[in-house]
Amino acid sequence: MGGVVARNERNLPGRVAATVIFGAIMLFAGFTEAFGGDGISYGFRMTVVTLIAFWAFGRGREGDLMNTAVWAFGDRIGFDLGLTAEMAVSSLRRIEKDVRDIRNALKLKGSRGPVYDLIPLGFTLTLMQIHRAREQGRVLATRGGYQGGGTFTPSFHCSKTDIFAFFSSILIIAAVFVSFVGYL
């Protein structure tokens, strides 16, 4: 699984982010195991889910979510869901650059350390996202007259690896289902 995810460098976050995320998972798993829970299983499952999430985020193409949502739920609810998801993902991708730029700006201004920087960084990011969301909303309303739903023709490109990914995802879903039934 790790090999598949790591095949493309874009699939993985930076070293620091990966250390923090996987470190937190291992920490919780360790505590759970130490206090009588099934920490090893938790750690394994969370690692797999996180790697899949990185892969999905890194390999996703613009329009994937819109295509899927409209295909699955139609022009009304599907369009709204797809549009919301696309906007959320594009915001996430912009946040990567925003965080880098804000950290650089704070460094140039005289950073007081990563902990102190977290407050202005989080505050600026949040407000910037709110401003952008408001602007995007206005653009949708004024340029497209958007009120809800829309016309969109989904299109998909299929490659050989997609068939492998399809069967792998069914295996994962089945494994999750079996473990859930076992838990009950």
Binding site: D98, D101, L108
Partner: peptide
């Protein structure tokens, strides 16, 4: 930087 909000603390 081009975007002044990055500098705000």
């Amino acid at each position: 930087m081009q975007f002044p909000e990055y500098h705000v603390t």
